[in-house]
Design a protein around this nucleic acid. Structure first.
Length: 482
DNA sequence: GCCTTTTTTTG
DNA sequence: AAAAAAAGG
């Protein structure tokens, strides 16, 4: 190399701050760095306490560990790599700017209230220091503040919200992952991924990885599996926990391993005369995800407070730690509930239909405040997502926006017979009941002798009598209105 | 995106 | 007599 070359101005550096956008495909922050002629320095900053009361749970950490490793591997294939640091985020970015000489910072937005506040502060502070800072939308089809009703207010009901989305449906083109990435070794190397201690010390997550492959490649493989399999018939099969009837994309979406816009573009490409209704049904589910983020942005207190303030006076039952543990561990004596809770514990995921059933049981039959369920899901779900989790629990509990009315009580026996008609889901997750014939498998307490013979360790009676639980929930609700 | 009970319709 | 629809929580 001629010496003169070193005097030529090198390409300026930009920090690309990865958060819940752990992908290279259609990543606007990364792309903006490249398009503006910067050499991107990909960084991940571990700062769980910046999530406020909603620091990531254990299952989420286990997933993130693997997803970060996958992102780093993908970056390395392209000549770059991911650098890991400990927070606080602002101080870490400032120090990186000082040591690398980076002139810009790019990131993709998050919508959790604590993160929105933090990001706003980071942006203002760095800009005051003369740094170029830009944020982008990588996680949503539409930014929450761009969807308004006729009065200019945020929507509170899903159907009109969804109609508004459809009427303004205009998605930009996806940008493919760059084939090569310029690279700089300027500045500190950071710490090894293992230092972040995201992976469990004890391998309680062993059962997760038969079911899931975190990371961008796993996300695209899951999408392909969905398109080749469950998409056809999705509209009807998506409610069947005994089948692979859903996309199983939720954790990949949460971590931003795949863009919703990419999913839409693939589904539209795959749309045929035969599967149009199925594609539309899936898009509607993506719509619920959008709605959840819309609500969280506009009503940031809802992870901890009832959306419907009338419920602030509701007579929730005092929590019995023992009963709550029975629900958590899948030992309520109600098979469909126990199957769901055990699926969650063993795989970090639960079928959506079953989420509604176990949530209804906790908030109606046990009449426990939805927060107890939301917290448990938060810790155990690999797809734990503040927007979706909050909407889901407040929806079932009847306290939310466009929620199921409180008097809508799911009957777990009826739900099981409707959506797991052969009892296969129950048999898989509560195998000790597989020796019972099917109608009995939904309500084994109805034949105590058979239950004792087949599964002597299974609770002989449900935690709550179905009829009594329903009635007392309805009575508490009546008092609220009265 | 429900359940139960009551009422009406259908075979 | 059973199934479907309606009503109301």
């Amino acid at each position: 190399m001629p010496a003169a070359q070193s005097d030529a101005p090198a390409n300026p550096l930009a920090l690309v701050w990865f958060r819940n956008d752990l992908r290279l495909d259609d990543n606007p922050a990364l792309q903006a760095a490249l398009d503006n002629g910067y050499v991107p320095i990909p960084v991940y900053i571990h700062a769980p306490d910046e999530g406020g009361d909603w620091a990531p749970g254990a299952a989420s950490d286990a997933w993130r560990h693997r997803s970060l490793a996958a992102l780093d591997a993908a970056l390395r294939q392209r000549g770059s790599h991911l650098r890991y640091f400990f927070g606080p985020s602002l101080a870490t970015l400032q120090s990186l700017i000082a040591t690398t000489g980076a002139e810009a910072v790019f990131w993709n937005r998050r919508y959790e209230p604590a993160h929105e506040r933090r990001d706003a502060n980071v942006k203002t502070t760095l800009r005051q220091q003369g740094i170029r800072v830009e944020s982008f939308n990588a996680a949503l089809l539409f930014e929450p503040w761009t969807v308004r009703n006729k009065q200019g207010l945020p929507f509170k009901v899903f159907t009109p919200y969804w109609k508004a989305l459809l009427s303004q449906w205009q998605l930009g083109l996806c940008v493919d992952a760059p084939a090569r990435l310029p690279h700089s070794d300027e500045g500190p190397a950071g710490v090894p991924l293992e230092a972040l201690k995201l992976a469990p010390e004890r391998d309680w997550d062993r059962g997760f990885w038969d079911e899931w492959t975190p990371g961008e490649a796993g996300a695209h493989a899951a999408l392909e599996t969905f398109v080749d399999g469950a998409l056809r018939g999705y509209r009807e099969q998506r409610d069947r926990p005994d089948r692979i009837g859903t996309s199983r994309l939720s954790p990949h979406l949460h971590f931003g391993e795949i863009a919703p816009r990419r999913i839409v573009s693939v589904l539209e490409r795959e749309r045929t005369a035969g599967n149009g209704a199925d594609v539309d049904a899936y898009l509607r589910e993506l719509g619920w995800r959008e709605f959840a983020h819309h609500l969280l942005h506009h009503f940031p207190e809802t992870p901890d407070r009832n959306f419907d303030a009338r419920f602030n006076d509701f007579a929730w039952s005092p929590v019995s730690a023992a009963q709550l543990a029975q629900w958590q561990q899948g030992r309520t004596g109600v098979p469909i509930i126990d199957a769901g809770m055990r699926e969650l514990w063993q795989t970090g995921w639960m079928h959506n239909r079953v989420r509604m059933i176990v949530a209804s049981f906790l908030t109606k039959h046990l009449r426990y405040h939805w927060r107890h369920g939301a917290r448990w899901f938060w810790d155990t779900l690999v797809d734990a997502d503040l927007a979706n989790n909050t909407l889901g629990w407040q929806w079932v509990a009847g306290t939310g926006a466009d929620a199921a009315p409180y008097f809508r009580v799911f009957n777990p026996v009826l739900q099981a017979s409707k959506f797991d008609p052969d009892g296969d889901y129950i048999a898989r997750w509560v195998p000790e009941l597989s020796g019972l014939p099917v109608p009995l498998r939904f309500s084994p307490w109805q034949d105590p002798a058979a239950l004792r013979r087949v599964a002597p360790d299974y609770p002989p009676q449900p935690l709550v009598d179905m009829g009594a639980g329903r009635d007392s929930a309805l009575a508490a609700y009546r008092k609220l209105r009265g």
